[in-house]
């Protein structure tokens, strides 16, 4: 669904690249975490998928299409196939929950009857039935993020990108949001989530791609936030073997130390 081939992104010629020859493939229907410190290249990755930026070299494929070959007037069509959720929700404060979600359909020209049918259905999926007429400031943070997710998926995109969607939320609420994202993933949507939230990553046990200084240093299936094998050389070997799952997931028994260190006993 998303494939990066030797992608490098340089913002500033004098600084190190934001992404440095990344090779990565995320399949249809997969759920992948993108982890790493600030400045490790997570957001750049998401921007390249959306064609907000152009890769300095290498090719980015989304749904089988090289985004470099998409002409600017076709970019909207690419973006219709991708839902995006942010840390700060980005709801329209003067519009109700229903209107916020309906907005995403109005602007691409969906008919009123389709909107009337689809929006309540999506709101139900994210667990907001009965709150259609609330304004965003009348909702909790978690509920606001659910509205944002509903808006992102209301046009049934094949891919959902989430940029630290739980960054502003407390752990319990975050788990609720993850439940929603998981449900959307089960319905067949590819989900890529950039996050710092170790609890969530450890809880979900999904594929984890770790970036550091623009390089993928780890790509594991059913992994934890921090790996037991933090060896850069190994990650290079992983990358060379075309990205992912080159190594079996680490033995869950071997992760005890990580959990203790990162989750402080809160884990699982």
């Amino acid at each position: 669904m998303i494939r990066f081939e030797n992608v490098t992104k340089v913002y500033d010629q004098t600084a190190r690249p934001a992404l440095d020859s990344i090779n990565l493939e995320i399949d249809r229907g997969e759920f992948a975490f993108l982890v790493g410190a600030s400045g490790s290249g997570k957001s750049t990755f998401l921007r390249l998928v959306l064609k907000e930026d152009r890769a300095s070299s290498g090719a980015v494929y989304v749904a089988g299409q090289n985004v470099a070959n998409i002409s600017s007037w076709r970019v909207p069509r690419l973006r219709r196939g991708i839902g995006v959720v942010f840390q700060d929700f980005r709801l329209l404060p003067q519009k109700t929950v229903f209107a916020n979600v309906a907005f995403a359909m109005q602007v691409i020209g969906k008919s009123r009857s389709v909107i009337r049918d689809t929006v309540p259905e999506v709101l139900k999926t994210v667990g907001l039935e009965g709150k259609e007429n609330r304004l965003p400031h009348e909702l909790s943070g978690g509920e606001q993020q659910r509205v944002a997710i509903a808006r992102a998926v209301v046009n049934r995109p094949g891919i959902l990108l989430a940029d630290e969607p739980t960054g502003n939320l407390d752990p319990t609420t975050s788990m609720g949001i993850m439940g929603v994202l998981d449900k959307i993933n089960q319905n067949g949507t590819t989900v890529v989530m950039a996050t710092h939230d170790d609890d969530i990553v450890n809880e979900m046990r999904k594929r984890v791609v770790e970036l550091r200084n623009g390089v993928i240093i780890r790509d594991e299936a059913k992994a934890l936030y921090t790996s037991m094998i933090p060896v850069v050389g190994q990650s290079r070997r992983l990358r060379d073997a075309s990205g992912r799952d080159a190594e079996p997931a680490p033995d869950p028994g071997g992760t005890t130390r990580t959990e203790v260190r990162d989750a402080g006993g809160n884990q699982l």
């Binding site: 069509r77 973006r79 980005r90 329209l92 602007v107 691409i108 020209g109």
Partner: peptide, 17 residues
Amino acid sequence: RRETGIMRLVGASKIVI
């Protein structure tokens, strides 16, 4: 800019924006 930002993200065409 909020509205137009969201319109961009959900794939509204240039004309509509």
